[in-house]
C-alpha cells in the first residue's frame, strides 16, 4: 500500500533523513511560499524548482520516479482546472496551476519521505500546535490501516455471500458495523492505556537539539529558493 512505501522511505539513513524535522518542515514552508508567489509563465524558475527537488531527492536517496508518480495524485484535480483555464484562453496560467500543484506535492512528499510521523508531529508540537491535535493525528494514523483492512475483509465477506449485494442499505449496514467495531476498539485501547498507568496526560518526549548542520541545511534551502525566485 501507498503508506507503507512512505513509511519505508522515512526510515532511511541519508543525511537528509538525519536533519532535524523542524529544519525540514521550515524548508518545506519556505519552498512552498516561494513557489506560490512565482508568477505564471516564469518557466525557467519552475524548471529550476524541479531541479532543486530532484537534487534533494537524490540527497535523500529516494526514487525520483516513485516520488513523481505519488505526487501525480494531485493531477486529476489540477488537470481539470488547468483544462478549464486553458479553455477560457489563459494557457500560461493553466500550465502554472498544474506545475505549482505538482511541485508542491513532490516537496511535501520529500518531507514525509525523509521524516517519520513522530518526527514531523514533534516538530509541529514544538511550534505550539495543540497537543490534543497532535495526539489525534498520531492515533488516526496508527489505526487507519487496521480499520481499512477491516473494511476490506467486510467487503469480501459481503461479496462471498452474493456478488449482487450492493444495495444502499447494505453499505449503510457496513458503515454501522464498522462504527461499532471502531468504538469497541477505542474502548479496548483506553483500557490498555489505563492498565499501564495512564492518568489522563501523555508524557511528552524531550525535544532533540537543533544542530548547526540543521541550521546550515535550512539556510541553504532558503538561499536556493530565494535565488531562483529573484533571478529567474
Amino acid at each position: 500500500m501507498h503508506h507503507l512505501v512512505i513509511d519505508r522511505w522515512s526510515r532511511g539513513s541519508s543525511s537528509l533523513h538525519q536533519r532535524d524535522p523542524r529544519a525540514k518542515l521550515a524548508a518545506l514552508l519556505v519552498f512552498l511560499v516561494v513557489l506560490s508567489t512565482t508568477r505564471p509563465g516564469a518557466q525557467w524558475a519552475f524548471v529550476a524548482y524541479a531541479v532543486l527537488l530532484i537534487l534533494t531527492a537524490n540527497l535523500a536517496r529516494l526514487p525520483i520516479l516513485g516520488l513523481a508518480s505519488r505526487a501525480a495524485l494531485v493531477l486529476p484535480f489540477s488537470a481539470t482546472f488547468a483544462l478549464l483555464t486553458w479553455w477560457s484562453g489563459d494557457s500560461l496560467r493553466a500550465l502554472a496551476l498544474a506545475e505549482k500543484s505538482f511541485l508542491s506535492g513532490t516537496a511535501a512528499l520529500l518531507l514525509v519521505g525523509t521524516t517519520p510521523l513522530t518526527g514531523w508531529t514533534a516538530a509541529l508540537e514544538s511550534w505550539r500546535v495543540p497537543r490534543m491535535l497532535i495526539l489525534v493525528i498520531q492515533f488516526v494514523y496508527r489505526y487507519l490501516f487496521v480499520i481499512a483492512e477491516q473494511v476490506q475483509r467486510m467487503r469480501w465477506a459481503a461479496l462471498c455471500r452474493g456478488p449482487k449485494q450492493r444495495g444502499f442499505r447494505l453499505a449503510a449496514g457496513l458503515v454501522g458495523v464498522l462504527f461499532a467495531r471502531s468504538w469497541q476498539r477505542a474502548d479496548g485501547i483506553y483500557h490498555a492505556m489505563l492498565a499501564r498507568g495512564f492518568r489522563g496526560r501523555f508524557v511528552p518526549a524531550p525535544p532533540a537539539p537543533f544542530r548547526s548542520s540543521d541550521a546550515l541545511f535550512l539556510s541553504t534551502c532558503l538561499a536556493g529558493c530565494l535565488a531562483i525566485r529573484m533571478l529567474l
Binding site: 498520531q138 496508527r142 479496548g188 485501547i189 490498555a192
Partner: peptide
C-alpha cells in the same frame, strides 16, 4: 488484541 495494546507511534 495486540493492536489495541500497542497504540503509540513506535
Amino acid at each position: 488484541d495486540s493492536d489495541e495494546q500497542l497504540f503509540m507511534p513506535t
